[in-house]
Amino acid sequence: MSEANAILRCAAVPEEAALQELQRRFSALLARGVVFRVELEPELIGGYVALVDGKRYDFSIAARLEQLRVALGGV
């Protein structure tokens, strides 16, 4: 099983255990080995964005706040 090209963008450096857990979950999801290269991006505020083999999974606080901003647009 080849290793995927994977980047993890986080607002702060993740704990090693959390990173291992994420890699395990993504490996299971994509049925191939995933080893993240971590990049820091403080604009995300919190959470993370995983970039794996041309797909983007956004679990960041910044994205959630943006969703909230759009939803509250009518207020």
Binding site: R56, D58, R64, Q67, A71, L72, V75
Partner: peptide, 20 residues
């Protein structure tokens, strides 16, 4: 209270998509 009401009923979606 109006704002809280709106936020309470809101569910976040995980955004996935292609990137380059």
């Amino acid at each position: 209270s109006h704002l809280l009401e709106k936020v309470k009923g809101f569910t976040f979606e995980t955004k996935t998509g292609d990137y380059g």
